[in-house]
Amino acid sequence: MTETTLPLRWRPATTEPALVRWGLTVLCLAVLGVLLFAPLIAVFAEALRDGVALAIASLSEPDARSAIRLTLLVAAVVVPLNAAFGIAAAWAITKFDWRGKPLVLTLIDLPFSVSPVVAGLMFVLLFGANSALGAWLVAHGYPIVFAVPGIMLATLFITFPFVARELIPVMLEQGRAEEEAALTLGATGWRMFFTVTLPNIRWALLYGVLLCNARAMGEFGAVAVVSGKIRGQTTTMPLMIEMFYNEYLSVAAFTMAALLALLAFVTLTLKTALEWRYADQLAANHRH
């Protein structure tokens, strides 16, 4: 049998010439390197410039510790609330046919197209000391703006669509048959939800929660407007980074940034693991 040598100019009809393939790949990797990887390396390099000990020491400062505590607290309140909202919204939208659904869907997505700064401004207007409601709340000892509740509200607004957007496509795809089957078998509503619906959407829910959490811990613009940036009280980690940075406390700023970058790593790793293992149970527009 004579091997037929592949002529140089022959290639499968659905590929580009090798030179183009390699050129494009190298170009893409170069852009990603300059834009994504270089900044990431810079964060850790700057944090560790004066040694690990100093970096860690900067985190044990009281202001830094209170910022970390506040960020964790905000996420701990915001993420479950948005998960609950996401489940309720996805349930109402995918299990029932009703008028005005497209409008409600648009409204849920609205926070995506509003600047975080404008979002913060909204809450300042609503609850600030110069609004009637705000003045009343302050008088009764429940300040919202320049206090922790305001930070939570602004973060809720910013992360509002995350869980719902993840669940809706998945639940649409799964349809209603399994829930209907559970009902015909005599399950009550809650029993059906916990034994049929929740197991089907758990990975998508986790996926949405991950993204929601990443954004909740990292939100800057909206929180900057409502927090008042009171050190040790209303300063979250991203705001602390800004303060350190503006005070030329470079190591402290970048160490705090490195901590958040580690959070981003964890988020990406978990997210990717979910995409690889449970691709079929995640929203259709995610890949793998």
Binding site: L29, L32, L36, F37, P39, L40, A42, V43, E46, L211, A214, R215, M217, G218, E219, F220, G221, M237, P238, L239, I241, E242, Y245, A253, F254, A257, L260, A261, L263, A264, F265, T267, L268, T269, K271, T272
Partner: peptide
């Protein structure tokens, strides 16, 4: 690389800014 494309979604903007 594919996973890293989502980094801007996961990395807080203030971190990206100073970096």
């Amino acid at each position: 690389i594919d996973a890293a494309v989502d980094l801007p979604f996961a990395l807080p903007t203030a971190v990206a800014g100073i970096a």
